[in-house]
Design a protein around this nucleic acid. Structure first.
Length: 290
DNA sequence: CACCAGGGTACCT
DNA sequence: AGGTACCATGGT
């Protein structure tokens, strides 16, 4: 038995599916039989990439695939993005190491909640926490027969109704009160995540940072990975390492000077450049099959 | 077994 | 304004 309900093919070149889906912007993807599977907006999906594009399969009928091409951002002109990067050795090395790395366009709530859980955690652990969270608070998702049961990412309403102890049970530790408090603010409509699409980066960032457990770094991740603000430039320990080793080898610049450098040097696609640096720093020195 | 991980917050000078 | 301990848990 089997029965995939729908499939399509997205024609796109230079799309590195493995790198894009595992580089720390989304946390629910896993490989099965050489293909990538996850739940997007409550829908099970399976992706298989080749040189000419991405084949996609779902478990329920689809007529309009816009939700998927929007998520994957398969329609953007990657080459013009790469051409907008500063021409320096670190950026060249980063692009050479992984031409085809893309930025996704994710659901704001899932992205926000996921990155609240990301603080001082390794990517594998974030995946584990989110897996438990979905299992315990998400709803069942239709999958092809024979697959393990899968769950949607829990809504803010559902998490707002949870207890801190239940959330701590998902191994998230001290992040539990942050996630709970933010879920309650979203559920109570103290912030309208959808509305941020129509604002400026600065206003959106300011609003996000008013939420418990959301500082500049996590806000920038959400701005970049969910809202598509390409100027947003999250600085975590890896990106800070890249900036210091590659651009400021002599002495460490103060935070203000560093921020000034980021906003002036990397151009209109600074967030994209940041993701290439991040991926480069994390993978260099490892074998490519890891 | 130390040390570190896609940080934020409260509390100190 | 700028530094620092603490938060919880698992990988390396």
């Amino acid at each position: 038995m089997n029965a995939l309900a729908a499939e399509t093919f997205l024609h796109v070149r230079d799309y590195d599916l493995p790198a894009t889906l595992t580089c720390g912007q989304a946390f629910r993807w896993h490989v099965r039989d050489g293909a990538w599977e996850a739940v997007i907006d409550g829908k099970w999906v399976r992706l298989l990439g080749d040189q000419t594009g991405i084949r996609a399969e779902t478990a329920i009928p689809q007529t309009d695939w816009h939700w998927l091409s929007d998520y994957l951002q398969s329609g953007i002109d990657l080459n013009s993005v790469l051409l907008s990067f500063p021409e320096d050795q670190p950026m060249r090395a980063s692009v050479t190491a992984c031409r085809g790395l893309r930025l996704l366009r994710q659901d704001p709530w899932e992205c926000l909640a996921s990155f609240i859980l990301s603080s001082t955690k390794q990517i594998v652990q974030i995946q584990q926490i989110i897996g438990l969270l979905c299992e315990r608070f998400g709803t069942h998702v239709v999958t092809p027969t024979g697959r393990p049961l899968l769950h949607s990412f829990p809504t803010a309403d559902r998490l707002a109704a949870a207890t801190e102890a239940e959330l701590r049970g998902c191994k998230m530790g001290f992040r539990a009160p942050y996630l709970l408090a933010t879920a309650r603010k979203v559920a109570a409509k103290e912030i309208d995540l959808h509305h941020l699409h129509g604002t400026t980066v600065e206003e959106a960032r300011e609003r996000l940072m008013q939420l418990p457990g959301v500082g500049a770094k996590i806000a920038n991740c959400v701005l970049l990975f969910a809202y598509g603000f390409q100027q947003a430039f999250p600085v975590d320990v890896w990106v800070m390492k890249a900036l210091r080793e590659l651009y400021f080898p002599k002495r460490r610049p103060n935070p203000q000077r560093l921020q000034r450098f980021i906003t002036t040097y990397f151009g209109s696609n600074a967030g994209y450049a940041q993701q290439y640096l991040f991926h480069y720093m994390r993978t260099k020195g490892r074998s490519k099959t890891d």
